[in-house]
Design a protein around this nucleic acid. Structure first.
Lengths: 233, 233
DNA sequence: TACATTAATATGTAGCTACATATTATTGTC
DNA sequence: GACAATAATATGTAGCTACATATTAATGTA
């Protein structure tokens, strides 16, 4: 079985995946250990390790030290969402991007925002309501809360010119990001801002980010009717 | 600067990320090459390489052979969606899962489905409409097309008992998956199946998968009003 | 038998070398 | 100067060794 030519880890990965596919190893089965596979394929253990790590990342197998590698019983569809800065999203569609600050004020967090962050106590935050436009038409309306303790510099940013979206993404990396996607019927106030009709179904993205344990920002972005979030992979 | 103790690649990654964060290297800047960093940190190039690969995967930097490593100008928010089998999703919420086959027939692909797959010609596919229930209430309605040429075995599966969702995920790994998420107002026929009201906003997930170049399945899953798709990372 | 201690084991990581590959920079030729 | 051939260079990958770490299995003792 051993083969003299060099094997790439993608080849090894595909071979193992194929064996899982054709039921050589079924859901819940324990796979041979890396060394065993390495001997069989005639490659180094590190190459098998790499292949296995990829399979584990994509949700095909599960690995545990000493426990070995198992074919997952409940395969998962894993897709990576790429959420760019809204300006770039608009520009990549070939549209002209505009931005409007609607409201801005310092407020204590509401219970809903505290829940998003998992905060036990209210905190003073900067609340920013703003509209992103594509070709002069409303694109996404965002209602954002920014933690003034974690991001004090935001107070000195001119948010009539630069969007908080862009400033934060460029200046404040995060270590954790929670996402929540859902559909919501358009309300009266939506109609005003998004020029939508009362019956429209609106796509909503809620995003909350932290740096370590410290809250950065929590926002609800409501997209214009017809908006679609697309991934390929 | 070199340090005798062993450095983990996560440490190196975090150090480099921190330098990007505190503007030692700004957006668009070229980072030192891996060897240079290795010398500075007193670790092996492979360790820096691992750290860099992780930063590249998470969208912080961009790497090109010979071109070196650059801090991305347009940082992206990357989130991994975990889409489990619907049965498991329901059961993990502590609800009782049920499944109902509504309709099943062999049809030629409509232009919309052909577009999803990127097919130039119509193909015969198995169209399956089915309902997933949680605690006897409609949860997700799926309208699915399955390519009979790629997955002929599906013809002999009893879809009144097993959902196509589960059978396919368990038996047909895919190599490519396109996703499309959007909101849509509930229609008349939605109301019947999902017990929704006419004005409801419905969350829709469209998923198309291939194995190599061959189409496997394309489906539109319409969730009950109030459904939310959540990720943590 | 019950429970703590120890050994065994499979994966995870760090470090090294060597070579592959893609891309840029340089050089040579007309 | 234009363009092709060649060299230089930074990242990507494969293979090796050694050790770390987590977890299970085996063992010993009360």
């Amino acid at each position: 079985m051993t083969d003299k030519r060099r094997h790439s880890w993608t080849e090894i990965r595909d071979s193992i995946r194929q064996m899982i596919l054709d039921s050589t190893y079924g859901p819940g089965d324990k796979l041979p250990r890396d060394e065993e596979f390495a001997a069989r394929f005639g490659c180094a253990r590190s190459t098998v390790h790499r292949a296995m790590r990829d399979l584990a990342e994509s949700g095909v197998v599960e690995r545990r030290r000493k426990g070995g590698t198992m074919v997952r019983r409940d395969p998962v569809t894993r897709a990576t969402l790429n959420i760019p800065i809204t300006r770039l999203e608009v520009e990549q569609k070939g549209s002209v991007y505009q931005y409007q600050l609607i409201r801005q004020s310092v407020q204590a967090t509401t219970p809903a925002i505290m829940a998003n962050f998992g905060l036990p106590e209210p905190r003073p935050m900067l609340r920013v309501e703003a509209l992103h436009l594509a070709d002069s038409r409303p694109y996404i309306f965002e209602d954002r809360w920014i933690c003034l303790e974690t991001v004090p510099e935001i107070a000195s940013v001119d948010l009539t010119r630069d969007s908080a979206n862009e400033w934060l993404v460029r200046n404040r990396p995060y270590s954790r990001c929670d996402l929540r996607l859902y559909a919501r019927p358009g309300t009266e106030s939506d109609s005003e801002v998004l020029q939508s009709n009362a019956g429209d179904a609106l796509f909503v993205m809620e995003r909350t980010t932290w740096i370590g344990e410290e809250p950065i920002t929590s926002l609800r972005a409501v997209a214009h009717p017809g908006y679609q979030l697309v991934t390929q992979g």
